[in-house]
Design a protein around this nucleic acid. Structure first.
Length: 263
DNA sequence: ACCTAAACCTGGGCGC
DNA sequence: TGCGCCCAGGTTTAGG
């Protein structure tokens, strides 16, 4: 599910919902993926909710932090009333709060929860930070001839961009996803930086992409899937030049682009 | 340092 | 209806 805009949206919702609430009970329904012990969290309040790359961090009043990666199909959902049976399909953990329940769902079981995880991925530059500037991007791109799309999705280089928004940003910047990163011109890097920020902001505005599993904590859907420029648009005509959008595989992942607009 | 494929998993959609 | 195949927003690891 989640790339930066989805995780950021979840963060914003959870901040509203969780801060100040107390954990009064906990059920671990998947010990292989949920590495959280009752004794670390029971009786604690939520102080803050943060995001690093695609990782969500719930800060507790005992200064411990619950780290979570949602991978493809993870969800955090909040229920202010009793949980019903149907609510708990795919549920891996249940936090009983002083008011309501927070549940962690994950159909494909790739996601995880951990306490005080220090050694997560080495995360690269945050797109909405000062470090996300031309100088640093040039430095990153110059060092490799890997296809630019793979570099954008490399979490150790830039944190938070995944398959959807890499495709979308490259289309907006009119750059071919296969182009070697070190072949990008100054102008192209400038356009790409702008396009990444523009796409991520737009996706945030629409509260992320719910093509399949992503839901916000209030269980409503994001709407960026209605705004796709190229993602999942194979065979449709390009919004700029009307040529057919192509689909290729790059780094094992579906890649959508317009071969006329993106050189 | 690069690339690929496979592994971790489940469910939805499609063709036959 | 059902089976088999392909697809999926992510990351890690093994092997070349």
């Amino acid at each position: 599910m989640p790339e930066l805009p989805e995780v950021e949206t979840i963060k914003n919702y959870l901040k509203e919902i969780l801060i100040g609430k107390k954990i009064v009970g906990f059920k671990n329904l998947d010990k292989k993926r949920v590495k959280v012990k009752e004794k670390d969290i029971i009786g604690e309040k939520f102080l803050d909710v943060k995001r690093k790359g695609k990782i969500l961090i719930l800060k507790l009043s005992n200064n411990k932090e619950i780290y979570s990666h949602l991978k493809m199909t993870g969800q955090f959902l909040y229920f202010d009333k009793r949980l019903k049976k149907g609510d708990l399909r795919f549920t891996r953990a249940i936090f009983k709060l002083n008011k309501g329940y927070l549940i962690f769902n994950d159909i494909r079981k790739f996601g995880w929860l951990k306490i005080n995880e220090k050694e997560i991925q080495k995360l690269g530059i945050e797109p909405f930070s000062q470090e996300f500037n031309l100088k640093n991007l040039r430095k990153i791109f110059q060092r490799t001839k890997r296809p630019i799309k793979l570099v954008l999705m490399d979490q150790e280089k830039i944190a938070g961009i995944g398959n959807i928004y890499a495709n979308e940003a490259l289309f907006l910047a009119k750059i071919n996803p296969q182009k070697p990163a070190n072949k990008l011109t100054k102008e192209e890097i400038k356009r790409l930086k702008k396009s990444i920020l523009k796409i991520l902001k737009k996706a945030l505005k629409y509260e992320g992409t719910s093509s399949r599993f992503y839901l916000k904590p209030d269980r409503s859907k994001g709407r960026y899937q209605e705004k796709f420029l190229v993602y999942q648009k194979e065979g449709k005509s390009c919004s700029q030049c009307k040529k057919e959008i192509k689909r290729i595989i790059l780094g094992g992942r579906s890649t959508f682009y317009c071969s006329r607009c993106q050189r």
